[in-house]
C-alpha cells in the first residue's frame, strides 16, 4: 500500500483535481491498484509508464468514460462521481485522445464545432459556417496555431497539425482540466517540437491544468512541472521535474521490475 501514498500531495493550497485510492478491476485483472494523484491549478503533470501500466484506464476514469471499482475523486475541491463523458465535460474536463477523434473529410472549422454547430436563425436552421469559420480562426490564433486555412480538410493535414486542431477544439470548449493522451506519439522531431511549443503556450495561459500521458522520459521532464511513474497499475514514483532526471526514473523502473519478478 506504500505506493498508493506516493501520488498524494502535501495537503496545502487549492487543487484542480484529486483522485484518491482509485482501484479498477476487470474481472480478475486489476488494472489500477490504489492510484492517487493531485493536480494544482495551472500545473502540468506528466504520467509516464509502459504499455499496460494502466495509463489509459486512468484516463478513461478521469474523463468519466468508465467508473472506478473504488476510490474517490474531487474536482475543484468538490467530491464528484463522474457519471459520463458529458458529465466530466460539464465540469471542464476534456481529453485529446490519441486517435484525435477528427473527421478526415470535414474542414478544420467543421471538425472544431462537430455536434456543437451554431445555426442560422429560423426558418431554415442552416449551418452558420461564417461564424464557425471566424471562431475557429480565433481559437487557433488564440493558442498560436498556424494553419494555412481553416477551410482545409483534416485529411490534408499532417499529424502535428491534426493534434493542434484537436487540442484547439478541446481548449475552445472551455476546458479547465485538459488530458493529453500521447500527444507526441508517431510524430517526427519537427512536428513534436511544434506541439511542445503549443503545450508550453497553453501552460503560460495559466487557466488550464494539464495532464500529459507519455512514453518519452526526456520530453516529459522538459515540458511538465511534475512527473509520476506508473507501473503495473500503481504509482511507483513522483517528483518535481526539476528535482529528478531520466537516469533516476530509469533506476526506479528497473528496481520495481525486479520486485515484480521476485514476487
Amino acid at each position: 500500500m506504500s505506493q498508493a501514498a506516493i501520488g498524494l500531495p502535501p495537503a496545502t493550497g487549492p487543487e484542480a483535481l484529486r483522485a484518491e485510492n482509485i482501484v479498477k478491476r476487470f474481472g480478475a485483472v486489476t488494472a489500477l491498484n490504489g492510484v492517487s494523484l493531485y493536480l494544482k491549478p495551472g500545473e502540468m503533470l506528466g504520467i509516464l509508464g509502459d504499455n499496460g501500466a494502466g495509463k489509459s484506464t486512468l484516463i478513461k476514469i478521469l474523463t468519466g468514460f468508465q467508473s472506478p471499482t473504488s476510490g474517490t475523486m474531487t474536482v475543484d475541491g468538490k467530491q464528484v462521481a463522474l457519471k459520463s463523458v458529458d458529465h466530466a465535460r460539464a465540469l471542464g474536463i476534456e481529453c485529446v485522445y490519441q486517435d484525435l477523434a477528427l473527421i478526415p473529410g470535414l474542414s478544420i472549422y467543421h471538425n472544431m464545432f462537430l455536434n456543437r454547430e451554431p445555426l442560422r436563425p429560423w426558418p431554415f436552421r442552416l449551418l452558420d459556417n461564417k461564424s464557425m469559420r471566424r471562431r475557429a480562426v480565433e481559437a487557433l490564433e488564440d493558442i498560436g496555431v498556424n494553419i494555412p486555412s481553416v477551410d482545409e480538410e483534416v485529411a490534408m493535414l499532417s499529424g502535428g497539425q491534426r493534434q493542434a486542431v484537436a487540442i484547439a477544439r478541446a481548449v475552445y470548449s472551455n476546458a479547465r482540466i485538459l488530458l493529453l493522451d500521447e500527444p507526441l506519439a508517431a510524430m517526427g522531431a519537427r512536428e513534436s517540437g511544434l506541439i511542445l511549443d503549443l503545450i508550453d503556450r497553453l501552460k503560460k495561459r495559466g487557466d488550464l491544468s494539464l495532464i500529459m500521458i507519455a512514453h518519452n522520459y526526456a520530453q516529459t521532464l522538459e515540458v511538465c512541472d511534475r512527473v509520476m511513474l506508473f507501473q503495473h497499475g500503481e504509482v511507483t514514483f513522483q517528483a518535481k521535474s526539476a528535482e529528478t532526471s531520466v537516469p533516476e526514473l530509469l533506476e526506479v523502473v528497473k528496481r520495481n521490475y525486479k520486485i515484480v519478478r521476485g514476487a
Binding site: 463523458v85 485522445y97 486517435d99 484525435l100 477523434a101 473527421i103 478526415p104 473529410g105 470535414l106 462537430l114
Partner: peptide, 8 residues
C-alpha cells in the same frame, strides 16, 4: 468518415 469520433 470516422464513426467512433462521431459517436464520441
Amino acid at each position: 468518415g470516422n464513426v467512433l469520433a462521431a459517436a464520441e
